[in-house]
Design a protein around this nucleic acid. Sequence first.
DNA 1: TGCGTCGTTGTTGTATACAACAGATCGGAA
DNA 2: TTCCGATCTGTTGTATACAACAACGACGCA
Lengths: 225, 225
Amino acid sequence: MTLPTAQRIRLALENAIVDGRLTPGQQIDPDQVARDYGCSRTPVREALQALEASGLLIVQPKRGTFVAKLGVPELMDRFELMAELESFCARLACRRADADDLARIDTALTACEGARHDPDRYYAENTAFHQAIYRAAHNAFLETETLRLQAILQPYRRRQLQSPGRVANSLAEHRQIAAAIAASDADGAARAMTDHVLVQGERFRDLVAVVGSLSRPQAGGVALR
Amino acid sequence: MTLPTAQRIRLALENAIVDGRLTPGQQIDPDQVARDYGCSRTPVREALQALEASGLLIVQPKRGTFVAKLGVPELMDRFELMAELESFCARLACRRADADDLARIDTALTACEGARHDPDRYYAENTAFHQAIYRAAHNAFLETETLRLQAILQPYRRRQLQSPGRVANSLAEHRQIAAAIAASDADGAARAMTDHVLVQGERFRDLVAVVGSLSRPQAGGVALR
DNA sequence: TGCGTCGTTGTTGTATACAACAGATCGGAA
DNA sequence: TTCCGATCTGTTGTATACAACAACGACGCA
């Protein structure tokens, strides 16, 4: 219990969202959370505000707090930026990755291969592979920001890996990216990573084009235009 | 007021930091802020936490809350990402800017020209010029994130414009960027913007290289990063 | 039947009080 | 003089209570 309650709640909720136990659009009852953790509303409130700031929750004043449910335009914006950030990570990794970084990337790639027949495990190993590249960029701030955006997009990526054949394609792309980084081919790594991420965005758009028309998304990022 | 106290405080402090009325390293006394705004500690606490989440403040547990004072590695990381984000904005603007966007950019450029002899005014107009480009990228999420990072870096940019000749150079770079966007020259705009931002990062490093040796010598990470 | 209005109810925002913790300071002993 | 420890003080974390507000539903009126 060395960690403040508010942060424990924050991490727990964040994990629940990323792991899919809380799904986009789901309402969160602060009082219930407070009961669950045996605390008052105050630390819960702090946790919810922090999660809202990082984009995982949205608070609709006087209506309730919900797991962020992004509409198509909001998701396209985020995938577009994610592709750029990850691509930048890959590019920097080509310049800066040391032996340890390369080893971590290779280990993660192998773990992906081993998990290719188990979607849930592949999902986790895929996440780790990308994070190994963020780290290899040797820019702590970039790493943090990219991790945050990754967390926001995780609930939406999860579905995609269930498309038949997607895992195999993803694996092939991973190999290509890892090879480019190992060869210090900055342009190649950046391009491969951009494609890898944007494919997910495209796939997602296809998905929602079919299913999406049912439920109305809540505005996520808030654009003042 | 129609705005919650907590948000009023947050905005006020954010402006104070960006405008330079609160300087990096300065301590913030929550009780004093509460007195200033005639409220209790609760909304102040919320405001401070939000500002910490956005990177403008840092809270050292049991020691106090301070305006973020970034060291050289932290600043290099942020400038590096800023260059990438702004460059990406410029690139997207080439693809997506409509007549209104171009007009706003042009207006902002003209305002910069008019303010060239007044550093404070130029500082403000320079900010507006960049923001016009973020907006022209037509990616609301990217715009928000870039604005946030811009706010974090503002206190450090301010000093640079005081270097003799920097304003003139900055203006020339602005013209080049605006021209590239108007001509839909994506690569040219991206490159010009990257250089424009990185020059500021370099300039900053020169600055601290002179002054910084007293406070804390910086060893690694500065090389070619 | 449609619309406007009013009350109810849930949610949020704020105030206040208290407890726990860590840093800092001071004093004493080696 | 230096090191160690205890106390003291300031800061943070949490609990609780209350007030204000807006959304929602029900009711009445046209």
